[in-house]
Amino acid sequence: MKRAVLTLAIISSLASLAACVSAPTGPTIAIMPREGKPFDVFQQEDQQCRDFAANAIKDTSNASLKEGATSAAIGAAIGAAAGAVIQGGSSQNIGTGAGIGLLGGAAMGAMNASGKQNQAQAQYNIAYQQCMYSKGNQVPSYPSQGGGSNYRPPSSGFKPIQ
């Protein structure tokens, strides 16, 4: 009985971790308005680009949310089958096998969903960057539009020994 309670506690903990996966809620990169652009215009563009990026990844984020539940269910089924095979199919072994399978499946599902969530965030950031860049804002690692000949990377302050 103690083992069953412990197994259920572990399973519910992992299942709740798998449920923590969520779609990106905003960019994780800094974009600056170009020189002379009013801040209220920049804020409007920011909102437009957030909407654009959210629509660009809608299918990807839904897939990551389903990943955890699917892996947990498959793990439970495989665990129950393995538990039935071990020790001649006693009901105690089926329950233990299902619990262990659910535990492993939830862990794998959480890892897979986390990877898909990271991928969705990267895609969100790219779509957001592209949108903000197209509106003339300053995007890290890209020279500003029209900056051509005056653009130079910042100096590190290092001077070679002569």
Rank of each mutant, 00 (worst) to 15 (best):
T60E: 14
G105V: 10
G148K: 00
I10V: 14
I94V: 10
G147V: 07
G83I: 10
K116T: 02
G115N: 12
N125D: 10
Q119E: 09
S12E: 04
G99C: 08
N137R: 04
A4T: 06
A110L: 03
E67M: 12
Q47P: 00
G104N: 01
G95W: 01
Q130F: 09
S91G: 08
Q92L: 13
I74N: 04
V85L: 14
A53K: 02
N137M: 07
Q48S: 05
V21N: 10
Q48G: 01
M132P: 05
I94W: 00
V41S: 05
N112M: 09
A120Y: 03
S71R: 06
P140G: 02
A107D: 04
Q145V: 13
G97D: 03
R152E: 04
D46N: 14
I78W: 02
G147W: 12
T28E: 15
Q121G: 04
F42G: 02
L102A: 12
L8C: 14
S71Q: 07
M32E: 13
K159F: 12
M108A: 07
F158G: 02
I74L: 12
T96V: 14
C20V: 08
A76I: 08
T60P: 04
E35Y: 15
I29A: 01
N118Q: 10
G146M: 09
Q138R: 11
I11D: 04
K58L: 12
Y128R: 01
P160I: 02
R3H: 14
V21H: 13
S155L: 07
Y151E: 05
G147M: 12
P153R: 12
A110G: 02
A30K: 12
I100K: 00
T60C: 09
T70M: 12
Q129N: 13
K159E: 15
S16Q: 09
A30G: 05
